[in-house]
């Protein structure tokens, strides 16, 4: 049962129905996060957040899909979710140990531990995790940790009518995804590619446990083109800090030393 699990979200199969969004809210019993009309195509969810753990992006482009005869236009959908990065910024920055890596290799925020320091929020390269001011804790997709414990599929993947969201063992998902891209490319869909499927393709996170098949630049979907978790470069900061600390110490000692001289002069 345990072992690395994740999502493969194939946007070429997504029909933008938002079943994933609602199934997630239903299972996790999340509240709504405002009834606001945005003017952004059919996307009134806008982004992932403390109360929204699945978000379907709607992109209207004046560009045709290479396999579609529908004029100079296409409408892309993509169901975004926490990526459960192999190296996760939120996890590594969490000072309380509220965020842990589970036996399924997913990243889980323990709501009974989180003290709402907010540090994970500025450490997520995908803008996923967030805090609701009234609640004070950080929240995000749990990969349905509770369901996985019972060998159940996460709510979003289970609900997805078109198998755009596939849940499974990561190894299998990666194979499936590669076969899928090949098939699509053979069928003429040259623009299809995988996003974050492994460490090689996304060294900054060492790969995503929830990865995607996309049809346009990541930016179009509001995904970073080359994300890196901060902790990956933190060594340099510490070195720099050591230097700075030494500098202050030196300055302090120097001040004390020179003050003696000054006293004499």
């Amino acid at each position: 049962m345990a072992g690395a699990k994740g999502f493969f979200t194939d946007t070429t199969l997504c029909i933008g129905c938002k079943a994933c969004e609602v199934a997630c809210k239903q299972w996790n019993q999340l509240p709504d996060d405002g009834l606001l009309f945005t003017g952004m195509s059919y996307d009134n969810t806008v982004h992932l957040g403390a109360s929204t753990w699945r978000h379907v992006a709607f992109i209207e482009r004046p560009v045709p899909l290479s396999t579609q005869d529908a004029g100079a236009f296409s409408w892309l959908f993509s169901s975004d979710v926490c990526k459960h990065c192999v190296r996760a910024g939120c996890l590594e920055s969490c000072p309380t140990g509220a965020i842990i890596r589970t036996e399924f290799d997913s990243v889980y925020v323990q709501p009974d531990i989180c003290n709402g320091c907010g540090y994970c929020i500025v450490n997520c390269p995908f803008g996923v995790i967030d805090r609701r001011s009234e609640d004070g804790r950080a929240w995000k997709c749990t990969l349905c940790y509770d369901r996985l414990r019972e060998d159940m599929t996460p709510a979003c993947a289970k609900a997805c009518p078109t198998e755009s969201i596939v849940f499974g063992d990561l190894d299998e998902l990666r194979t499936r995804a590669r076969v899928r891209v090949e098939k699509l490319q053979d069928a003429g869909m040259r623009e299809a590619y995988l996003y974050g499927e492994d460490a090689a393709s996304q060294p900054g996170t060492e790969g995503l446990n929830a990865f995607f098949l996309l049809l346009d630049k990541p930016e179009v979907y509001n995904l970073p083109p080359d994300p890196a978790i901060p902790t990956k470069g933190v060594g340099r900061s510490w070195i720099s800090m050591a230097a700075a600390a030494a500098g202050i110490a030196l300055m302090a000692v120097g001040s004390v030393f020179f003050s003696k001289l000054g006293g004499r002069s």
């Binding site: 933008g16 609602v22 239903q26 509240p31 709504d32 009309f37």
Partner: peptide
Amino acid sequence: RLTEHHTAGAMSRWLSWLSELQPEMF
């Protein structure tokens, strides 16, 4: 009709999980 609502709305407009997805007439 839209995916997010059901006909005259009696089974969807009262539900926050659906209403937030298409909150207004357009």
